[in-house]
C-alpha cells in the first residue's frame, strides 16, 4: 500500500501537498480517536454511532486529500457493502442470542467490574457492531455520491458538447 501512496502523492491527484502532509499527520490520530469512542462507548459519552462517524470521516478526508483511488484501495466499495451488512447482522445476532438466556436483547454475558474496559456484557459488542456498520455505510454513501456526481458531470458535459455541434 505504501507504494500506491507514494505514487499518488507524487502525482497531481487530490489536493495540494500541504493538505496531503497534514492529512498524513492527523490520519492516525483520527482513527485512534474513533476507535476509542467506539470501544469506550459503555463508559464515556459516545458509542458505536458517534465513533463510526469519526472513523468514516477519516476515510472521507483521505478521499478528499488523495483522491478516490487511494481510499478505495484501503476499503473498496464491495468491502464497504459487506462490512455494512456484517455489522448490522452481527447486531441482530447479538440480540437474538439473548434468547438463549431468556429474552430478546438480554445482556447474557458476565457484567464484570464497573468502569473497566471489559465490562457491561454485550454492550461493547453491540457498540463495535454498530461502529463497523456506521463506518462502512457512511463511507459507502460518500463513495456512491462521488461516483454518481462524476457520472452526472460526464452526462452534462456530453450534452453541452452535443449542443455546440
Amino acid at each position: 500500500m505504501d507504494n500506491l501512496e507514494n505514487e499518488i502523492r507524487d502525482t497531481n491527484k487530490g489536493m495540494t501537498s500541504i493538505v496531503k502532509t497534514i492529512v498524513r499527520y492527523v490520519m492516525g490520530i483520527i482513527v485512534i480517536f474513533g476507535a476509542y469512542i467506539v470501544l469506550y462507548g459503555h463508559l464515556t459519552p459516545g458509542g458505536g454511532f458517534a465513533g463510526g462517524v469519526i472513523l468514516a470521516s477519516a476515510y472521507v478526508i483521505l478521499t478528499l486529500a488523495f483522491g478516490r483511488e487511494l481510499a478505495l484501495g484501503k476499503m473498496s466499495n464491495t468491502a464497504a457493502s459487506v462490512l455494512d451488512n456484517l455489522g448490522a447482522l452481527a447486531f441482530i445476532v447479538i440480540g437474538i442470542l439473548g434468547f438463549t438466556a431468556g429474552a430478546f436483547f438480554l445482556n447474557f454475558l458476565a457484567k464484570g467490574e464497573q468502569f473497566r474496559l471489559f465490562s457491561a456484557g454485550i454492550i461493547p459488542l453491540c457498540n463495535i457492531a454498530i461502529g463497523i456498520k456506521v463506518t462502512a455505510s457512511l463511507f459507502a454513501i460518500f463513495i456512491a455520491l462521488s461516483i454518481f456526481g462524476r457520472f452526472i458531470y460526464q452526462m452534462t458535459d456530453v450534452e453541452e458538447s452535443g449542443g455546440e455541434e
Binding site: T78, V82, A88, V93, G95, F99, A103, F104, F105
Partner: peptide
C-alpha cells in the same frame, strides 16, 4: 409468547443476510 420480537428480528436479519449472500 417468548418469541414475539422475532416478528421484527427475522425480517431485519434476512434483509442484511440477503445482501451478503447475493454476492455469491
Amino acid at each position: 409468547q417468548g418469541y414475539y420480537p422475532l416478528f421484527t428480528a427475522i425480517p431485519l436479519a434476512a434483509a442484511f443476510f440477503n445482501l451478503l449472500v447475493c454476492k455469491l
